[in-house]
Every structure is written in C-alpha cells, then in structure tokens.
C-alpha cells in the first residue's frame, strides 16, 4: 500500500510516564518528530534520556500497567497508540520491525536460528499485506549471511555477536517493512563488526527504501547513517537538524558538550 503522505511516521507530543508503586517518572516529555520514506532519523542522547522509551512506544511494546502514554504516533492515518491489539500485531514485523541492542538476549537461547526465523516468516506471511515477504534465505542474504546449515542449525550462543545481530536484521527484513526501529544496534558489537553493520544498514535503506529510526548514544554510528538527528536530554528534545548541522555546527550547549570531545 503506497503511502500518499510525505510522512511515514509522525510523532506528535509524545509523553510517557512510568508508574512504579507510588512514584511516577516522566521519561518522555512532549517529543515530536517525523520520518519520511527511505530516510534515517537518529535519536541521540545519554542513558536515561528516554530514547529507548520512544523506540518502544512506536511499536507499542511498553508494559501497559507501568507506562502511561499520551500524544500521537501516526502511521499513515492510523494512530499506533490507539490501535487495537490485533491491528498492532498485524503491523509488527510486517510493516514496522525492531532490532534490539543485545542480540544475545533478544534471540531465544533454546531454539535454533532456523526455527526462530521460520516463526517470523510464518507470521509475516499470514498478515494481510499483499506486498509479499522475503524468504528466509533471501532475508539472510540481505543481511549478508550464508543460508547454510551451519548457521541455521545452530543455537544463538554458538554464534558471534555480529552474526547474531545479522540474524536479527534478517528477521526484521523478512516482512518487507517500511520502517525499522533500531535500538542501539551496534553497542554490544566489536568496532570492526560495528562498521560492517553500519554499512549494511546504509545499503538497506538506500536499496530497499526502508526507513530507519536509529537510537544510539554513539555519535560515530549516527554520523554514518542518519540524515537527520534529534538530540534528547531528560525526555525532551534540545536540538534537531540535519546530521551535518548537529554534528558539525551544534548550537545548543548540551549538544556541543556531547559532540565536543572525541567519541
């Protein structure tokens, strides 16, 4: 289904408050941004800035009992925050996919890679979108993994960090999503592997016309992929602009601090 809007994802005044017992914590305070097709938006900030919460909100995976969410997250003309569970489930994996920080924890330790990939394949195949899906081997190739038994028949703990992250990427790509939300996708990886993953993400955005919402505290990673950047601090945006603007000519003092010293 082609998007007639210019904006793929539009977040308006997103507010997330966590309730733990009697205390409440405002994690996200009125954040607004948007994403266009084939485009990468980087959200940078230190730990505790709320960036992971924003990522989780887009997919609606915040724990309902703990988090109160206000605002709008528009996907076309649907508000992801107010969708039915069924509709949200249909979108997940098929239209919007997510990659997590620690692939060792994000993959199930007791099932083979093949099993886990096929589970996702079966799921996205049955969603109501006629645009089709990638096969398991196609998705693996796109993540530059050889579709061979020595990967498929193994368990996650038998693979290196970089390979596990590629498996996650293959999983995310199978449903031919329009948006991938990547929460610190390279933080747990070695630096040489990090660059390979950055390159991979760059080529996927360019060749498959997928948008990427990239959350990272690592400015080098963001510099390598993001077209525009939003700087988050304590749940609010302090500055936003193109990658060049933010990284080369930051205006806000906090941004200057972040950018100032060597990564």
């Amino acid at each position: 289904m082609a998007m007639t809007n210019e904006k793929l994802l539009e977040v308006n005044d997103l507010c997330v408050t966590y309730r733990i017992g009697k205390k409440s914590l405002e994690a996200v305070k009125g954040v607004s941004f948007h994403l266009r097709p084939g485009f990468c938006l980087g959200i940078v900030g230190e730990s505790g800035s709320g960036k992971s919460t924003i990522a989780a909100s887009v997919l609606g995976i915040l724990p309902r009992e703990l988090a109160k969410v206000n605002g709008e997250v528009l996907w076309g003309d649907e508000d992801l925050l107010r969708l039915s569970r069924a509709r949200l489930n249909a979108l997940r994996g098929a239209e919007i996919s997510m990659i997590f920080q620690n692939p060792s924890q994000a993959l199930h330790p007791m099932y083979t890679i093949e099993f886990q990939l096929e589970q996702v394949f079966d799921k996205v195949s049955s969603s109501n979108f006629s645009k089709g899906t990638l096969s398991v081997s196609e998705a693996m190739s796109m993540a530059r993994l050889k579709c061979s038994k020595d990967i498929l028949n193994t368990y996650p703990h038998e693979l290196s960090g970089g390979m596990k992250q590629r498996v996650m990427l293959a999983m995310a790509l199978m449903g031919k999503p329009q948006l991938i939300v990547a929460d610190e996708p390279t933080s747990a990886l070695d630096v040489t592997v990090q660059l390979e993953v950055i390159e991979l993400l760059r080529s996927i955005i360019a060749n498959e016309n997928v948008s990427l919402l990239l959350i990272s505290h690592n400015l080098g990673v963001v510099a390598g992929i993001a077209d525009e950047i939003v700087v988050l601090r304590n749940g609010g945006i302090v500055e936003s602009g193109t990658a060049e603007q933010i990284l080369l000519e930051p205006q806000h003092t906090y941004t200057r601090e972040l950018v100032g010293i060597r990564v």
Binding site: K146, D150, I151, M163, T192, E199, V221, A223, L247, L248
Partner: peptide, 29 residues
C-alpha cells in the same frame, strides 16, 4: 581494518566510511 573502523564524527566522511573486511556472505564455519 581496525583503524578503518574507528568511528568518524563528520557525517560527510562517516557516510562513505568503508569497512576493509571481506564482503562475502558470512558463515559459521
């Protein structure tokens, strides 16, 4: 390869930063 992977802050350079590693499909062999 290690040196080439050092993160670059300048987006213009970072976007063309290339890993020196082989580009084959990875296996677990």
């Amino acid at each position: 390869g290690l040196k080439a992977s050092i993160p670059i802050r300048d987006p213009r350079l970072a976007k063309t930063q290339r890993s020196l590693m082989r580009r084959d499909l990875l296996t677990n062999e």
